[in-house]
């Protein structure tokens, strides 16, 4: 449980770094979380983060890896809809890391 001042706003995170209040997300919050993660966000990251936010608004949950890969494949094509591509962008556990940066809850069904 930590509160950070980001772009003049007090933003609260849970113990695992996910937003307490999802409505507080902004690109600045994503930048802050990326820095914590040692990542520099590029256009390739942003298109995944916005795809995740669209997934969440439509399906009301954060996707596990398998549906994330499938959703990316459907929206962004076969080259990007692969685990290895997402692993390169969000090393470690792409479904968890990308959900956190996109301001979504932790995926429930994640390995």
């Amino acid at each position: 449980m930590a509160t950070e001042n980001i772009a003049g706003q007090a933003i609260a995170f849970d113990d695992e770094g996910y937003l307490d209040d999802l409505s507080q997300w902004s690109p600045q919050v994503a930048e802050y979380l990326a820095t914590q993660e040692g990542l520099r966000l590029t256009e390739a990251h942003w298109e995944i983060l916005y795809l995740l936010r669209d997934f969440y608004s439509r399906y009301e949950h954060s996707p596990a890896m398998r549906p994330l890969v499938k959703a990316v494949k459907q929206s962004l094509g076969d080259d990007k809809g692969r685990s290895i591509y997402l692993m390169q962008l969000f090393p470690g556990s792409p479904a968890k890391v990308s959900a956190r940066l996109a301001g979504l809850p932790k995926p429930d069904n994640c390995l």
């Binding site: 596990a64 398998r66 499938k70």
Partner: peptide, 10 residues
Amino acid sequence: AVQQSLPLYD
């Protein structure tokens, strides 16, 4: 909402 994501879970 969740039901509509079922195809993405195959």
